[in-house]
Simulated assay, not measured.
Amino acid sequence: MNSSSVMLIVAFLAAVSSSCHGTSVQGRELQGSMGSMGSMSKYYTVKVDALYYTPLKGKFVNLLPPVKTSSSGAAAVIVFNSSYALGSFNFSNIDGVYMAHIHNGSKTTNGFPIVWGLNSSCAGTLACAGLWQPFSVPAKSHYSSSYSFSPSLPIPGSNLTIGHQLSMGLAYFNVHTIAYQGGQIRGQFAPLLKKKTISSCFTTTLASGTTQACYLCGAGKGGPGKDMCYLCGSNMMPVTHAEATKIFDGVAVAKASGLF
Rank of each mutant, 00 (worst) to 15 (best):
A256R: 13
S82P: 02
S70R: 08
Y143K: 13
P66V: 04
S150W: 01
L131P: 05
Y230Q: 05
T108S: 14
K140M: 04
A75C: 04
S145E: 10
A127M: 10
G27N: 10
T69I: 07
N110Y: 14
N104P: 06
V10C: 10
S158H: 11
G225C: 04
D249L: 07
N159L: 14
A190T: 09
M228N: 11
N2M: 04
Q181E: 13
S70L: 07
A50V: 05
N235L: 15
F60A: 14
T204C: 08
I114V: 15
M99H: 07
K196T: 07
A256N: 15
M168F: 00
I114P: 08
F202G: 15
I94H: 04
L51H: 01
I78V: 11
D227L: 05
V48H: 12
A74E: 14
P66T: 07
F91H: 15
T109G: 02
S234T: 11
K47S: 11
H103K: 14
H101A: 06
S83W: 00
G38T: 03
A74S: 15
A14F: 02
P66E: 00
C20E: 07
F80M: 08
P154C: 08
N104K: 07
S4V: 09
K246W: 04
L153Q: 11
A207D: 01
G73P: 00
G218Q: 06
N62T: 04
F202P: 01
F89P: 02
I78W: 00
P138T: 03
P156G: 02
G183A: 08
G32N: 11
P138E: 00
F248D: 03
L8N: 13
P138N: 08
F112N: 14
L56W: 00
Y53S: 06
A179N: 05
H103L: 03
